[in-house]
């Protein structure tokens, strides 16, 4: 049965200071899709993901969320979105619990899950109340990934989510992604890693050769 696409990228182009990074990107995502953006360094993966997060405006083209233009109905789109960039906003002087509490407050999350359970299931048991600056890079990553467990947003946009985490962490994150897709969620991520997830769609991002 053909599904209606939830998110459509309609010939997106991005230009920075008269230098065209990419153009004519057309994509669509349906419920249950996991999309991996591939490409060498500097090709614009992060830029594309930041456009999807609306942190950047595309130079041309538009985003459609459930058929409505994101530029016009930005609030509606943002309510359905979870974005984790390179720098995900983890406060170093706060503990993983405090960071998570803040995140849940600002996103108005009232799910009954307890903070300790969430952090414990990500292997941070015993580290919940230690300031983040005292944690390793991988543990900090895990503290960020805790947000994936409390969000109800159907669209996840993850920039290099596998950075710095160990094998067990990779497996945990893959399991999260699979569960998310099975619930009908969608994910767009950039990574150089081969994912252990069936039916991953791959999108090779190609640099634009032409100059303006």
């Amino acid at each position: 049965m053909p599904q209606t696409p939830q998110l459509i990228l309609d010939s997106i182009a991005f230009e920075r200071d008269d230098c065209l990074l990419f153009s004519g990107i057309c994509l669509s995502l349906e419920s249950g899709d996991v999309l991996q953006i591939e490409g060498p360094n500097g090709v614009g993966k992060t830029t594309l993901l930041r456009i999807l997060s609306t942190a950047l405006m595309p130079t041309a083209g538009k985003l459609l969320w459930q058929g409505s233009d994101v530029a016009r109905h930005r609030q509606l789109y943002l309510q359905n979105l979870l974005f984790l960039g390179h720098l995900p906003g983890l406060k170093q002087s706060l503990s993983p619990t405090e960071n998570l509490v803040w995140w849940r407050r600002i996103h108005r999350d009232h799910s009954p899950l307890k903070n300790e359970e969430i952090l414990g299931s990500l292997g941070l048991c015993g580290y919940e109340d230690i300031p983040c600056y005292a944690l390793s890079a991988g543990q900090q990553r895990r503290a960020v990934l805790a947000r994936l467990l409390v969000t109800e947003a159907p669209l996840w946009i993850l920039d290099e989510p596998f950075t710095a985490i160990d094998k067990q962490g990779v497996a945990d994150l893959e399991a999260l992604l699979i569960a998310h897709a099975r619930r009908g969620g969608m994910a767009v991520l950039s990574t150089h890693q081969d994912l252990g997830i069936a039916n991953v769609r791959r999108f090779p991002l190609v640099a634009s050769a032409e100059a303006v």
Partner: peptide, 15 residues
Amino acid sequence: SDYRDGTLEQLVISP
């Protein structure tokens, strides 16, 4: 500090 650790980006794209 919010700019450096990415919190500002999260605020700008929060609903």
